[in-house]
Structures are given as structure tokens and as C-alpha cells.
Design a protein around this nucleic acid. Structure first.
Lengths: 204, 204
DNA sequence: GTCTATAAGAGGATAGAC
DNA sequence: GTCTATCCTCTTATAGAC
């Protein structure tokens, strides 16, 4: 491809390793309890070096969220090419992916209350655009699933979308896993069933 | 009642004001972002005075959680004296109360990840006993509702209980409220319906 | 770009007078 | 028990040598 790309390749790999560590720590302890020192230690470089790649702790979190959005969009794309599948099933597949990711300890979770973090995320063009694309894709499925009778038509799509996002960072799977009485597959199946049945609206 | 209780009365009132402030701040910013300085400022006393009442920030949070458990148990008791009501409806009433509390900005939320906080909570005999009593009461209703066919019998009561607890601090209501397109009553109704329909298990 | 060393400041907790 | 003033640790961020 391009000349001189070797340096860039190395840079990319390094930054990918950083985002990996951030992602893991964000999933394990959340934004507030994650320290930049821990990130540096995990990557195996000095903290000052981290700041050559990312200007702030918030930027680190934003990078992790951008990558999460990219992966979610990849899952969406994978479902979009499947033919003859109901919208609700495409939606279910993506939720299942998110639940599995969470049980694997790889779902970064940000506090919705931290204002500086929110500000930085909302200032990130890249993140916002990916989030918008994801929401639009899911929104289409939601509307279609309502037309199919698989999601209660009385629910505003907005409510359904937020609910789906919330299930991706629901604390219940982690609690059940911590209990040790159930396997990951079983937990995912229960969560998915409860989520979808709730949106369908049961027998009313 | 008792002699010399005036001093104790004053103390009680003061500590109640402290727990009030903690409860509000916990609901607004969460444990990590709440500072002891803010609590002191809100109550209108010096920080050092706070520490005469509670030995640590974690103890402040624990006190707020104890009061929350007491109020939840009061709600449960209120439902238990109602005659001729299905278990699912008693459960629904308590969940409705929790959702309303949350939309009013009075539901304290603790990060499940903070280990020092967890340790202090699990060391609190009072909190643990109240939590156990609450869980047992709700557990009975859950089992009864399963027998009534109002909750899917395939779900372990444990899963249902955790799900109910999780809905009490679900981020979706706050998001919908922030959107400004729906009233509190409407939001509560949707959340409750989605929750209960999910647990019932729809048409399968 | 990587390091060591350090600045700068926030926040939990306490000393000691009253 | 309340206050003011302070301590001390942790954490974000940066300076400056290599």
C-alpha cells in the first residue's frame, strides 16, 4: 500500500494494545475506578508514553467506545446480509453478541453520570457518527419487527432502542455468573428471552 | 418515652438530614463522583462534623442503603396486608414504587464494581439483614406468581429476583425522562409492562 | 516516542481549639 | 459535636533527558 507505512503499522499495533487494555479495565472496574497508571502497567509502557498517543483519560475511554461501536456495526452488517430472516431475529442476534461480550468481561461500561466524560464523548465526531449509524440500523429493525408483530406496536421505537442498549450493560448477567450456579450459555438464553418477551408484550 | 431523649432527638434529626443529602447525591452522581465535601455543604455543616456521625464515606453510603431497604420493606408490608391480590400484582406495585422513586431522583445507586464499598456493605449486619428480609419476601411472591402462571416457571426465582432489583436502577427511565418526550407516569407504565411481560415469558 | 521524575490538585480523613 | 486548618494519599497530567 503506502510507503513508510511500517512506522504507522507499529503505531497502530501499539495503540490497539492500549485500547485493548482500556477496554478490559473499563469492563472490569468502570471508568472512575480505572486509573491511567493501570492502563500503562497493563500495556507495559510508561504513563507519559500513553499521553503521547491519547491526550486524556477521557480520550482513552472514547477510543474504547469507538472500537465497540465499530464492532457492533460489524455485527449488524453480518446480520444484514443474511437473507430471509425476520427483523426480530437479526436484533436478537446482535443482543446475544452483546450479552456474550459482557459475560466474557469485554464490554466497557461508562457511567452515564460523569459529565466531563459525557462532554468528551459528545464532542467526538467519530463516536457520534458511529452511534448514530448503529441506532439507525437497529431502529429500522425495530420498526420492521413492530410491523411483523414481534414487538409491541404501542412502544415508541425510542423506548425499544434504549432498552436494547441497556441490556448490553445490564448487571444481571454478571451477578448470575458470580453466583456460579449457571453456565454462560444458559444465562445468555434467559436474558435474551426475558428481554425479547418483554418487548413483544406477552399476551396482551 | 425515655429521659434525656431530647439530645438524641436532635441527633436523629441531624443524621436524618445527612442521610437525606447522601441519598440525593448518590442518586444524582453515584458513589464515586459524590464527594464528602458536597455532602457536608448540602447539609450545611463542616466536613469534620460529618465524621463524628459516620466514620467513612462508605458508611455514609451504607446508611443510605439501609434506609432504602427499610422503605422497600415498608412497601412490601403495605402490599402484604392487601387481601385478595395476586402475587404478581403485589410484586408489580413494589417495582412501580421503585421506578417512581428513581424518576424522582431519589434512588441511590452504587457501583457494583467498587470493592471497598462492597466490603463495607457486606460487613454491615443491619444492611444484610434487611436485604435478606426483602429478598425473602419478594422470593415468596415470585414463587407464588410462578405457581399462578404469571411468571415463567422455567426461570429460577433467583433470576427473577435479580431482574427485579436491576430494574430498580435501570438507566432507561432516566434517559427517556431526559429526552423530554414523555411524562413520568407513561415512562413508569412502559417500564413496568416490559419488565413483567418479559418475566411472564410471552406466548411460549 | 520512550523513559524518570515531578508538578498540581482533588478528595478522604484527622488534629486540636472551643 | 462543631468548627478551622491541615495532613496525606492517590491520580491526572507534564517537563525534560535520551
Amino acid at each position: 500500500m503506502s510507503r513508510l507505512s511500517f512506522r504507522e503499522q507499529v503505531l497502530r499495533v501499539r495503540e490497539d494494545a492500549i485500547v485493548d487494555a482500556v477496554n478490559r479495565l473499563l469492563a472490569e472496574k468502570g471508568f472512575d475506578l480505572m486509573t491511567v497508571d493501570q492502563v500503562a502497567a497493563e500495556v507495559g509502557i510508561a504513563k507519559a508514553s500513553l499521553y503521547k498517543h491519547f491526550p486524556s483519560k477521557e480520550a482513552l475511554a472514547a477510543a474504547a467506545m469507538v472500537r465497540l461501536m465499530q464492532r457492533a456495526l460489524a455485527q449488524v452488517a453480518q446480520q444484514q446480509v443474511r437473507g430471509g430472516v425476520r427483523a426480530i431475529d437479526r436484533l436478537a442476534a446482535v443482543v446475544r453478541w452483546a450479552l456474550t461480550l459482557q459475560l466474557a468481561g469485554e464490554m466497557p461500561s461508562l457511567p452515564s453520570q460523569n459529565s466531563t466524560l459525557r462532554a468528551e464523548l459528545l464532542a467526538s465526531k467519530e463516536y457520534l457518527e458511529l452511534l448514530l449509524r448503529l441506532s439507525e440500523a437497529l431502529g429500522e429493525w425495530i420498526v420492521q419487527a413492530q410491523a411483523d408483530g414481534d414487538i409491541a406496536a404501542a412502544l415508541p421505537p425510542e423506548v425499544v432502542l434504549y432498552t436494547v442498549y441497556a441490556r448490553a450493560c445490564d448487571p444481571v448477567p454478571a451477578f448470575l455468573k458470580a453466583g456460579g450456579n449457571h453456565g454462560d450459555e444458559q444465562i445468555v438464553d434467559w436474558m435474551l428471552a426475558v428481554c425479547l418477551d418483554g418487548l413483544r408484550g406477552a399476551g396482551r
